[in-house]
Write a protein that binds this DNA or RNA. Structure first.
Lengths: 290, 290
DNA sequence: AGTTGCAACAGGGA
DNA sequence: CTCCCTGTTGCAAC
């Protein structure tokens, strides 16, 4: 579940399903994916319950709290009672909920067992992170602290805000959108259809992008991400219950050799920096500077 | 007098000529070339006498001291009595000594008048610096503090030291030698003949440079710089007394269209990054990676 | 299919 | 023909 639409849906499901569940046990099979020694990680999370689950870019951010021994105690006196759980699926993988008694998968990097017998397993295909923090250290968590605009938030991701982040940048349009410090949540899947809809070549230099093209790009980001989010994310990715999404890269992404849905020209796969891009050479012409 | 051979000769002459001379007045016509407000600059240098003059890369470094009011006073008690004068001619210019009564040039950025009526003028063609420091702040002077090996010092610039600085670097051989943090004093004039003698293309990647080629490169650096230093520097540059040097770029530097002195092939002028290079396309073949 | 950190590189400015 | 600073790009690592 790499990119923003999948993360949004996963976080929403986790919020509903995990809220109130108390972490009774932690099975950490790959300590390397943590940001601290396993013992410290356990100390931070064990015995705490999920309060709410949200997202930030490609990260799931969960807030947990220890159940107050005396409910009338003011929260200020509950030292160390709050924690944050931060999850990044990296290049893919899944995060699954298992009802009490359900069969657990063989492979996972981290497993949480809840007090009621249900479980939560996290499996990475490659390079994922299961991090923990306190409210105080959350700001020091670089991978989430420096994330840029949330493209699904209409207030935050206004056209003016988008144009403001673009201001003065000189690189290519693809590397700009994939830099999580600018806009948070776009990866190498959704970028393909975004650039196709905006009719921009991936290597197009930002200084030459016109106001009209900025508008198209802005609209394409919103359209593609909202569309997939509404369809439960990519059809190749699984949600919290192992169900696949319904969105497919129906335009150009990963469709080399097939015809462009607009003009019929054969879609090409090209190398752009260290990543691959899929373009319609007719709809997304390289510019003089691209 | 941009590069090391000219600076070495200038510093040597300044050491002999200026030693003991006391700065009686300072005429600062271009405050931008200083590293502090003119008033502070004057406070540091006025009334002090040159003690010795040396060099570091393309910089002339002079030590000055206030004459001790009581010669038997230990130096530790003479607070603020020492100063450093740092001079960089940038892309060219001259630093001239004028005997008492001599006619001064019309144009200069900084003029020093000495107590005996003699003078010293500094003129930049472009971007030069006349800086001052105390013994305490000298280490904070980034432009001189981070300079690398002195290629004219046989002890310091041993082949092993040279190979040590090369170790692990992955860029091109020209940008390596022109980076003053590696070896200090080589600019775009001497680099041309150095690379020609070493038979290396400017863009040759360091990881592919063989031990033999490293030896050739090391020898070429020493040979070219020592040769020019012994001839008083470049024939287009002037020394402290306005006299030109005798060294010319006799091999390939700035000789596009003329024949290579070794094989007769026509010398080419090529763009290498942001600087120009002059090569014999036959003697300095580009490698697979260059 | 991702992110970091570093080295190398390019552009603008003094 | 110089240098510094900044942003960008490429590479290796996890």
């Amino acid at each position: 579940m790499p990119e923003l639409p999948e993360i949004v849906n996963l976080a929403r499901q986790m919020d509903r399903e995990l809220k109130g569940r108390k972490i009774a046990a932690l099975d950490i099979r790959q300590p390397k994916c943590l940001n601290m020694p396993p013992g410290h990680f356990q100390t931070l999370l064990l015995g705490k319950s999920f309060v709410q689950v949200g997202f930030k870019g490609k990260w799931v951010l969960a807030g947990l709290r220890a159940e107050s021994p005396s409910p009338r105690q003011p929260s200020a006196s509950q030292h160390g009672s709050e924690a944050r759980f931060l999850l990044s699926l990296g290049m893919g993988g899944d995060a699954l909920f298992h009802a009490p008694g359900a069969v657990l998968p063989d492979q996972y990097q981290v497993r949480m067992d809840f007090a009621d017998g249900s479980s939560f397993t996290v499996r990475f295909w490659w390079f994922g992170y299961a991090h923990a923090a306190t409210p105080e250290t959350l700001g020091l968590h670089k991978m989430t602290a420096e994330l840029g605009l949330n493209p699904l938030d209409e207030e935050e991701f206004s056209f003016d805000a988008f144009a403001g982040v673009l201001e003065g940048k000189r690189g290519g349009v693809k590397s700009f959108l994939m830099d999580q410090r600018n806009v948070a949540g776009i990866g190498n899947v959704y970028i393909q259809d975004i650039l196709f809809l905006a009719r921009l070549h991936p290597n197009r230099r930002l200084p030459s992008v016109t106001q009209d093209e900025k508008r198209r790009l802005y609209g394409a980001v919103r359209e593609v991400l909202a569309e997939s989010t509404g369809m439960g994310g990519l059809k190749y990715e699984k949600d919290l219950y192992g169900r696949n999404g319904r969105w497919d890269t129906t335009r150009v992404g990963y469709r080399e050799g097939k015809p462009c849905p607009v003009c019929g020209t054969t879609i090409e796969k090209i190398k752009t920096g260290s990543t691959s891009s899929f373009i319609c050479p007719s709809c997304q012409k390289p510019s003089d500077d691209a």
